[in-house]
Structures are given as structure tokens and as C-alpha cells.
Amino acid sequence: MQCEGDKTYGEKGSCPICKMDLALVENNSKLADDDDISEESIFNLTSMWHNEEGEAIQLKDLKGKTLVMVMIYTSCKAACPRLVADMRNIESQIPDKKIKKIQFVMVSIDPETDTPEKLKAFAKENFMDDAHWTFLQGTESGVREFANVLSVKYKEISPIDFSHSNIISVFNPQGELKHQQEGLGVDNKETIASIMEVTP
């Protein structure tokens, strides 16, 4: 018998209606997890992605860690290598005890060229193949939707070249945007401070 439908309680005791003892419910973490997501969270986006290992994931699979994200493409010869350098510079300033609670995410704006295999090779080439680095290839519509959320503008100007915004974004473990760093080779003091602040 369900007195109050799916209602759950956080403490031991008895049902206020039927007086039956409350039982501990296992595997209720999914329900609690979804309750933690606010309307501003990127984990509400349902698009599917592939990481550099070829595994299909959704953004909510990254929940629970501070996310430092940037949109790049691997064949870029101008801005992207500098964005990569900025990301690695930020990584180098994070204390070891915090690094396991942070995920550095590189999202490709060229999903046609940047296959998981290509992203994996790029990660190795740039010494970004530790567990705290993730590379994502999405669909054209998924990438466009995510770029809009980040206020990143990009445009294909030739089959192998894009013009794009240079923005590094910091999200808290609930997927809410907390800080953005715009430009190349800028002072990342505020970005580091923001990462440290939102990382438990």
C-alpha cells in the first residue's frame, strides 16, 4: 500500500498516515541526483556525445566534478594551440589534492573531422591524456546548442578552418556556469580562484 505515492523521508520513523515503519530504500541516489540539478545546469542538455575513447556519454555523466571547459578544433593552427596552452597552464596551478575533483573538457566545434580517434591522438600529442582530461565529439546540433549556452560563437570559413570565440568556462559540480575567461594568454588568476572556490 502506498499512502503518499513515491514520497520518501530522510530519517527513520513511521509513516505519519498509516503508522507503518519506514524502510530504508537503496539505490535512491538517482532521484537525489536529479533533484540537485537547477534550471541553469548544463546537465539538463540531453544531447549525446562521444569521448576520446569512443564511449557515448551525456554531459550529466560529468556531474560531481568542477568542469573547466573550452571549445576548440584539432586542425586549428592559430587560436586553439594557445587555448590548449592556457588550459594546461590552469591545470599546472591546481594543487594535486584538488585535481581529482576537476575535469578539464575540450569540446570540438568540428565534429565531422574530430572523430574520437583523432581526439585521442590529439590528447596524447599534447600530454592531455590523464584521467582528468576529457575530449568530446558531438553532433552538429549538439555542438551548436552547447556553444549557445556558453555564448561561444563559431563559423566555418573553409572546409578546414573556423573562426570562433576564445572562452574558457568554469562550472561547479552541479553544472552551473560560475566564471568565464575570454581571450588568449590572459591572466588566469580569477579563473584559478573560481575553480578553487567551487571545488570541494
Rank of each mutant, 00 (worst) to 15 (best):
P116L: 10
V107P: 00
I90V: 13
F135R: 01
S165Q: 06
V68E: 03
S108M: 02
K120I: 09
E125T: 14
P111H: 01
G64E: 05
D130K: 01
A123L: 06
P95L: 02
I168K: 01
A147N: 03
S163R: 13
T115Q: 06
K97V: 13
L67D: 02
I157N: 03
T134L: 06
S169G: 02
Y73K: 11
D86W: 02
Y154L: 12
T66G: 05
F122Q: 03
F146A: 04
C80T: 11
F104V: 02
C76P: 01
M106L: 15
P159A: 07
T115W: 06
A131G: 09
Q93E: 11
D161G: 13
T134Q: 07
I90S: 01
M87T: 00
C80P: 02
R88G: 04
K100Q: 12
E91D: 09
S158Y: 11
I160Q: 14
H164L: 03
V149C: 08
V105K: 01
A79F: 08
S75T: 13
A79R: 07
T139V: 09
V105Q: 00
T115F: 10
I72T: 12
E156P: 04
V84F: 02
S75C: 09
G142F: 07
L62M: 15
G138A: 10
G142H: 06
H132T: 01
T74Q: 01
T139P: 10
L136I: 10
E145C: 07
D110Y: 09
S92L: 12
S151P: 10
K118N: 14
A78H: 14
I157S: 08
F162L: 11
E91V: 03
V149F: 15
E125F: 09
K77W: 04
K120F: 12
K65L: 00
D110K: 06
S158D: 14
P81Q: 08
L62Y: 11
Y154K: 11
F146V: 00
E117F: 07
L67I: 12
V107I: 15
D110G: 04
C76R: 05
I168G: 04
K101I: 00
Q103A: 02
I72W: 08
K118I: 14
T66A: 04
I109Y: 06
S108Y: 03
D96S: 10
I94H: 01
S108G: 02
V107E: 08
K77H: 13
H132V: 04
V170K: 03
K118D: 11
S158H: 08
M128Y: 08
A123T: 09
V68M: 05
D86N: 13
